[in-house]
Amino acid sequence: MSVSEQTAMAPTGSAPDADDHIAHDAAAPAHHTSTGLSNEKLGMWLFLGSECLLFGGLISAFLLYRSKDVEGMTGPAVGDLYDIPFTSVSSFVLLMSSLTMVLSLSAIQRADHRRARTWMLTTAMLGASFVAGQVYEFTAFVREGLGYTTNLQSSAFYTLTGFHGVHVTIGILMLVSLFVMSLRGRLSAEKTETVEIVGLYWHFVDIVWIIIFTLIYLIPA
């Protein structure tokens, strides 16, 4: 086979490039990548894409088991125990923590470290009150006779909301670490992206709750 045919196999310049950005220097430091995007941020987005399938599975398991009519089901149905005003407040708290998170990022991008720290801590506190609310909700449910093993719905409910709660807790830990790093001056100007990446995770946890709040709490079985 001739060289010209060989070349013809390769996409020529006119071939559509699957990728908007062009390869550059692979060995150079971060922010100078083939796509021009940072490795860490791309990695976080990939992880979040993957998390969609995790929460999707847990939500599906709950929806499947809530809609199931089990004869002689032990214990109460989850839907009968919801305290909608209470959950609305804690949903609102989590939603507002997204605002404080983004304000923290915006502050640190302006190199306003003090304000960034304040908002970081506020975000962590809002997250913590959400988790505290969840703990309260769980104990209230258990007092009403709905334990983890009581019935199909209860297992699915506690697993789903518990997974979400663990995600929030991990987010709080990351925020506190950021706060400490910032206090000790380790969050330099080049590292504001770390805050952005933690922020992405935090907002993701928030949007998962937006879905859970509607699908699990508000829409009746």
Partner: peptide, 24 residues
């Protein structure tokens, strides 16, 4: 709204949007 503004997908690279939306 949260994804587009708070997570900046509206302002960021398309690649992020594609990755996230494909998972979703």
């Amino acid at each position: 709204i949260v994804v587009m503004w708070f997570m900046h997908l509206r302002f960021d690279s398309n690649l992020f949007t594609r990755v996230f939306v494909s998972g979703l």
